[in-house]
Design a protein around this nucleic acid. Structure first.
Length: 161
DNA sequence: AGACTAACGTAATCAATGT
DNA sequence: ACATTGATTACGTTAGTCT
């Protein structure tokens, strides 16, 4: 069934073959620290992620991605063994503080979005430099933007109001 | 060559902020 | 109250690493 795009189906053609961030390779001690933290809480808040990131010397967004992937692995394993997943333990930890994107920053991102809806890593870094926003926030900005402003390739300027 | 997994995508949803 | 939009989740795909 060719459903266009379910939660994680085949990637849209434009998104394929794009330059990704260079894949990092964890050292054994970094893995240990990540696993230990995961055992304490599989849903770490910003403070925990930041602290862990500092401790193992890696950017916080990489830690966040690791937890996302690790939860996927565990969830699947638990499902496969028909074992219940013991959801979040303890009170939910605090999220990242909402980033305030200024009008001028939005303008830059909007212009980039018109040119390319799937910017590669180099482009995202360039935008990060231009706007002063972290690259990880730019990636999220594009994800949200794509979800809320469906492609309509080459459509008019979209009467915004 | 195949297993493993970081990076990255969508869809749905939570939540902060402004009107 | 409601609209807008940043942040997080589940889960599937893509592509680099390692055996």
């Amino acid at each position: 069934m060719a459903l266009p795009t379910a939660p994680g189906s085949p990637l849209p053609a434009e998104a394929r073959g794009r330059g990704r961030r260079k894949r990092l390779v964890w050292t054994p001690s970094q893995r240990d620290a990540l696993r230990a933290s995961f055992e304490r809480n599989p849903y770490p808040g910003m403070a925990t992620r930041e602290q862990l990131a500092q401790a193992i010397g890696v950017p916080e967004p990489r830690v966040q991605i690791w937890f996302q992937n690790e939860r996927s692995r565990r969830l699947r394993q638990h499902r496969r063994e028909s074992r219940p997943w013991p959801g979040p333990r303890g009170p939910p930890e605090g999220r990242r503080k909402r980033t305030a994107v200024t009008q001028s920053q939005t303008a830059v991102l909007l212009r980039a979005f018109e040119r390319e809806r799937f910017p590669d890593f180099a482009t995202r870094e360039e935008l990060a430099r231009e706007t002063g926003l972290p690259e990880s926030r730019i990636q999220i900005w594009f994800q949200n933007r794509r979800a809320r402003h469906p492609g309509r390739a080459g459509r008019g300027p979209a009467a915004v109001s």
